[in-house]
Computed example of a mutant assay.
Amino acid sequence: MSIVTSRPALRWAVPVAVLLAVVGGGAAARTLTASADPSLPARTAAQLLADLQTARLDGVSGTVVQQADLGLPPLPGLGQGSSDLQSLVSGSHTMRVWYAGPDKARLALLGTLGETDVIRDGRDVWTWDSQQNTATHSVLPAADPSAQKPPVSPDGLPKTPQEAANAALAAIDPSTEVRTSGSARVAGRPAYELTLTPRDTTSLVGRVSLAIDAERRVPLRVQVYPAGSDSTAIEVRFTQVSFARPDPAQFRFAPPPGARVREQAAARTDRPAPAELPEPTVVGKGWTSVVMAKLPAQSPSSSDGTGFSVDRLPAVSGAWGSGHLVTSKLFSVLITDDGRVLAGAVRPERLYEAAATH
Rank of each mutant, 00 (worst) to 15 (best):
P226T: 02
V236W: 05
F238Y: 15
V241Q: 14
A227P: 00
L277A: 15
M292V: 10
E263L: 07
V241R: 15
G284E: 11
W287L: 01
S229V: 04
Q298F: 03
R237S: 15
P255D: 08
Q223L: 07
W287C: 02
E235D: 15
P296E: 11
E279C: 00
A267T: 14
S289Y: 00
R262E: 13
G286S: 10
S301H: 05
T232Y: 06
S303G: 15
Q250A: 12
R260W: 02
P300N: 08
D230W: 04
S299K: 06
A266P: 07
P256E: 09
R262S: 13
A297F: 06
I234H: 00
Q223W: 01
P246W: 09
P256F: 00
F253P: 05
R237I: 00
V261Y: 10
V261S: 10
M292Y: 01
S299E: 13
P274H: 12
S301D: 11
G258P: 04
S301E: 13
V241E: 09
T269V: 09
V261M: 07
F308Y: 07
A233V: 03
S242L: 04
P272K: 09
Q264I: 12
G284C: 02
A259S: 12
E276M: 13
F253Q: 04
S289V: 09
K294L: 06
S299A: 15
D304E: 08
G228D: 03
P219S: 08
W287N: 04
S299H: 08
A244E: 14
F238Q: 12
S229R: 08
A249Q: 10
V283D: 14
L220E: 03
E279H: 13
V261P: 06
L277H: 12
A265Q: 08
F308K: 08
R268Y: 08
T281G: 03
E279W: 11
Q264S: 14
F238S: 08
G284N: 04
A244I: 05
K294R: 15
S231D: 14
L220N: 01
A273D: 06
S303C: 11
S301N: 12
I234S: 00
R252D: 14
R268V: 14
Q223S: 13
S302L: 05
A297V: 09
A267M: 06
S289D: 13
A273F: 06
M292L: 14
Q264M: 12
V290M: 04
P256A: 11
A297S: 15
A249F: 08
P256L: 02
A273V: 10
R245W: 02
P256Q: 06
S242I: 00
P256G: 05
E263M: 06
A293I: 02
S231W: 00
Q298M: 09
T281I: 11
T306R: 14
V261Q: 12
P219L: 06
D270G: 05
G228E: 01
A273S: 07
A244V: 09
R262H: 03
T281V: 14
Y225K: 01
F238N: 12
P296I: 00
S229L: 04
V291D: 06
A249D: 13
R245F: 02
F238I: 03
E276N: 03
V291N: 09
P219I: 10
P274K: 13
A259R: 04
A259W: 03
Q223M: 04
G228N: 01
S242F: 05
